[in-house]
Nucleic acid binder design. Sequence first.
DNA 1: CTGTTAGCGCCTTCAT
DNA 2: ATGAAGGCGCTAACAG
Lengths: 333, 333
Amino acid sequence: MTARRGGGPTMHDVGKLAQVSAMTVSRVLKNDPGVSEATRERVFAAVDRLGYRRNQTARSLRLGGSGMIGLVVTNLANPFYSRLALGVQEVATEYGFRMLLSNSAEQAEREPDLIDDLIDHSVEGLIVVPTGSRQQHLADAMRHVPVVLAARPPAGLDTDCVLVEDFHGAREATAGLLAEGHTRIAFLGNPPALYTGAERLRGFWAAHEEAGIEPVHDLIRQGLVDAGTAERATRELLERDAQPTALFCTNNRISQGAIRALYKAETTLPVAGFDDFDLSDVLGIPLTVVSYDADEIGRQAARLLIDRVAQRDAEPPASRRVTVPTRVIRYGA
Amino acid sequence: MTARRGGGPTMHDVGKLAQVSAMTVSRVLKNDPGVSEATRERVFAAVDRLGYRRNQTARSLRLGGSGMIGLVVTNLANPFYSRLALGVQEVATEYGFRMLLSNSAEQAEREPDLIDDLIDHSVEGLIVVPTGSRQQHLADAMRHVPVVLAARPPAGLDTDCVLVEDFHGAREATAGLLAEGHTRIAFLGNPPALYTGAERLRGFWAAHEEAGIEPVHDLIRQGLVDAGTAERATRELLERDAQPTALFCTNNRISQGAIRALYKAETTLPVAGFDDFDLSDVLGIPLTVVSYDADEIGRQAARLLIDRVAQRDAEPPASRRVTVPTRVIRYGA
DNA sequence: CTGTTAGCGCCTTCAT
DNA sequence: ATGAAGGCGCTAACAG
């Protein structure tokens, strides 16, 4: 009962049963070569018989590392983040780390607390998708453990990050709409203070310049934060005299809001948007998505982080920036 | 640099600066009443100045509990599980616990290892969505820590679980189709060995009986595991001479596969399915979903678990079963 | 090849 | 109101 609470067997117990010292048990469990085959077997037998398991908490204390890395995301319910988490966990497991997950629930002000909390639990490194534009708390965190950023670059911080080809993807998708002859494309964007928001707008803009077409300023909406705000913004655009002939959305939730507005208005307009999503292929509307492998962002971030954790005692490497490629996919009519 | 690695300040350091013993620092940080206001302030000042943070690993070792609970799910990429995780985390945070997340990536055989791993890391309790039908490893786990099951009931285990109204939801949705006059409804189900698969079939069946209509055996498909298998099964049904006139799907991925098959076949058939999903409201097909609050499953499971953790030293409570209600929603034509 | 010593950082117990 | 001693379970460093 309540085994791990003072109950469970210790190395000492195992040693007693196997007639060796706790130290030898430790060596056996660590695969230390300097142990005779005979004792080795006796120890394993004792371990089995007692159902002994090494206490990782004690190990962490002794060794100074917990074998855990922390991941901080804003919203696990968004498939982008859950896939990212899967990627992180895949690589973490591969290298013998566990993942401690924290969700800031879109509240930027909670992020510093969550990070402190993870550090208190002796995570050996952190992967963070920064919520706001201030990153002072990340600088603080870096005094304790390595930090790698995902999806957004460091601002005044010297560390690694993994980014998506935001600019390139937005430019390519926009160029597709322009090539079809659209000259009045609405831009439905997340807050411009976010790196992704700014970059994707830049790509939208660049595609226009390259096509020699002036973007229509009146059709640019920024600061959309979820499907609801995107739906309202879209509806508002559709009610104007000078309507757009196509829409560009900067993320999956915005695309979904826009599509919902079109559906309710019983209108069809070509839509292009960042992030692929479930059923994008069966909507039956002209839809272009900028797709990329969110798992891969997590995997790469975990690799960069674990590398830094492993090099902990060496000179920290120069900060690296990895980019995950995007691919434009066209669905529908 | 690398603070928490032998670097960071300890209680001793704080004590030295505040001119008290480490013990007094411990008392202050614990809000122990027996400390004078003067020293209290000096200690806090020292804490601030050094940026001291209590080492949770050492605490865990000393206190015998890690303040963490483990959650084991099969597939974080499925919104059902990510929402469940959010619910767990919400309640865990509320009670001062952290959540350690493990993903078995649909590989039932990995589940025991993941669970052992979590127990080795001194989680104080576990929430598990059991993958397979064997639960022996859960019985083993229960010898160490309390375990609460989510979405599936215990099989030969004496513990709490949180379930969805599987039977009721399936019956109600099926009854809706029958009321519309359908007599040839296909059943597209996940493996019958899973509790949800069996219950939802039972509901499907019960609705038929109540309507005095014989289910068409030829139209029952079970063992579908993802959108791909569901799509193939649906296509196969559509190619038969005796086609169904409506479809019932037992989960979100199966619904999506079925919808994809219908789309590609350029056919429309009324679809009813368990689990709501993004954009279900804009597909423009007659769609009924059995919706429920997946977050709530996580919240309830976390409450049951934390209750057991808190009562650890008392007689364990009789096993409880909580049910989360379903709601049938109709979309589309 | 194996054992002893010491201590990671904290907190419970007992003393002052 | 505060401190000293001891130990949670484990392992690095040093014997032998």
